[in-house]
Design a protein around this nucleic acid. Sequence first.
DNA 1: ACACATTTATTTGTATAGCGAATAAAAAAC
DNA 2: GTTTTTTATTCGCTATACAAATAAATGTGT
Lengths: 411, 411
Amino acid sequence: MKTADPELMRAINRFHVMDAIRRFGPISRVEISQLTELSPTTVSAITAALLDDKLIMTMQVGALRDSTRGRPRVMLRLNPDAARVVGVKLAPDLITVAVTNFCADVLRSVALPIRIDRQTPAVIADLVEDGVRRCVSDAGLEMKDISGLCIGLPGVVERAAGVCRQSPIFGDRDVAFGPQLTERLGVPVTIDCDVNLCALAEHWFGQGRGLNDFLVVSVERSLGLGILHNGELFRGASGLSPDLGDFMVRPSGNEGGRLGDLASETSVLADLETPARSRESDGAHGHGRAIAQVVQRADAGDKRCIAALAAAGEALGFAIANLITLFAPPKVIVSGGEMAHSEHFLGPLRRALAAQLPPSLADVSEIVAREWSDGIWVRGAAAMTLRDLYGAPWNTTGPARPSTAIAEGEP
Amino acid sequence: MKTADPELMRAINRFHVMDAIRRFGPISRVEISQLTELSPTTVSAITAALLDDKLIMTMQVGALRDSTRGRPRVMLRLNPDAARVVGVKLAPDLITVAVTNFCADVLRSVALPIRIDRQTPAVIADLVEDGVRRCVSDAGLEMKDISGLCIGLPGVVERAAGVCRQSPIFGDRDVAFGPQLTERLGVPVTIDCDVNLCALAEHWFGQGRGLNDFLVVSVERSLGLGILHNGELFRGASGLSPDLGDFMVRPSGNEGGRLGDLASETSVLADLETPARSRESDGAHGHGRAIAQVVQRADAGDKRCIAALAAAGEALGFAIANLITLFAPPKVIVSGGEMAHSEHFLGPLRRALAAQLPPSLADVSEIVAREWSDGIWVRGAAAMTLRDLYGAPWNTTGPARPSTAIAEGEP
DNA sequence: ACACATTTATTTGTATAGCGAATAAAAAAC
DNA sequence: GTTTTTTATTCGCTATACAAATAAATGTGT
């Protein structure tokens, strides 16, 4: 915890005000005052400063004069043009880029269906750079208009250092992808675990609005876990994001208990030894098609497909039970592609969950399947950057807090 | 996050100063200033207030004048007599009570070897009340001298509400033990999961000094998990403490995969179907003796005992691997009785851990076995209370933060 | 012995924060 | 047009942190 001074005080309260404006849309000063429990005076002062900085703008009172008398409220909202940021999501066979404004509205996005896993980091950086430049240019902007950029990718990411410790995308370990792109693009680039972005997006725009605690489990080719705790993204020690794929669901002796080898899309396909269209050669969308096929065949009654999906669901349900035991979140969001929505997957997941959970926790968590949407990732990536621009004084989500001298141990 | 005002500012900085004094013993104002990065002016002001409140005291410069010239430093230390608090630890067959001073030094302690599990909460409250009153009186104090009391017990505890959701101690669910004792003793009583107290104690006095992240796994009759994250105790949503016993290590279909049924002392005994001295009738120390016997026989080469301990160690190692995957803590402290120190238990634990951990996390965590000491629990309980008296402005450890209006969702 | 250097602690003065009370602004109600 | 009501701002107050100047307390050197 940083030492407190007037500056921090202002930063905290300013963030509260910004957050209230962001969340509750056009909002008047009185309402902000009520929501934040700051005095009207303070709200007035802070909003004046924000208006001065052009971070927010006034909205002339529109329809909502409910024939109340008194001086009408002046509604405040974020100034969409205060900044533009870029969000990037890397998947093994798809690069998604989006440019958003200060409200996290997507101005322009491009999806590049390119198979990038096992390319060298330099090549991937090239592709990302190209994609970003193109998307920015398509949006009618130049790079100098961009205030920041965040890249989400699966795996274990150390956000503070901008280093990807390990990822299905990169063959190498410890790729300093953030600094690399920062240099290439001349814009501050952060990287983060993709599912963290998803969690932030859910918190800002999706199923997690108004919730201070929830889990996001992403089921794609690999598995991810994002934890929102006490209104903040939770990161492990030294800011590492956990990799749900490395979670073990049974002792490894008996033919591998890695969850990633049991419950991911990849593992389901491997389990079925999907014939024909070998996944290496089939380019970008082969994987997605293969999964869709599996789900279809399961719907049609194919026993093997049903069993494969059920096995995956059960394994994930087992893992989620343990996560609920640890975190007791009121909500668990299962986010993913077609597989994640199939009842052949979700049903066994729920059943396994119910079987494993201790009775005391049986009802604390609601499991919801989140409709897949490409947009949410990049919006989350944008939000991650915006959060910093909004002036968040909590370092929880930003780079790991520089541990104060007092925290260093014996003097 | 609370809104910031000058009061909070002062509270934060005062806590930093208190914490520096607590941790770095007799310490001068200049050193505090360096450690906390507060200005000398501020440190002077805060320490003056603390001295005024008699929370700290000056120490006449002792031996450590290293022939440096200049005005000698005035050393500051906690005033041991600033307050007394009581820590209580409940185990199924043992109640431990300790009275400590403001430095968390134990003034007096009593251990009551009473089998309390399955007694009614009222009876247990009676016993605790008696024990506390006796211990306080033995210390030459009266209840009015006591500033606070914290009770640690195994199970799932909701500290904020003072409610024990579930515990091997109580047959009932949702026992409001905190308020009950508060009324009986006329002193603020908090309750907490015992292993959280242990974690705090390790952080203040033990293996966790200077570490901002570590796990404590307690192996007793039941299993506990305490998480220190970013220098603060981690609690699940709504302040619930997790119960490691409910962690599953294999799908429950095949004869129960609850970790508590596989790796606790109780389960080892059950596994061996310890003959003779039936555990029900043998009063308080039967359990401990039985465990000691198992360890002894394992040391002597008894195959069944070795296997039982190994199975328990493996199960726990499996669970710890998953915890490391999630939290990546630099240290994991395994705390417990004789069983937890036996190499017949720890060896398999380490091996299972090594087998399950992903390579990228193979070396991040050091596993240490913590010598059992009754004292540490009650000292932790005392520390938990002292933390509040020191004025910790973070509600993470205290009662759950009253979620500000802004966090409540849509307006 | 006594001036001087040196380190530590306090005092003084300044800037900034938040907040309550009074005030101004703006619109409906009378 | 005046009053009422609600919203926003201004003014005056207090609390905080901090930098600079000052005081305190000790060792060093002549």
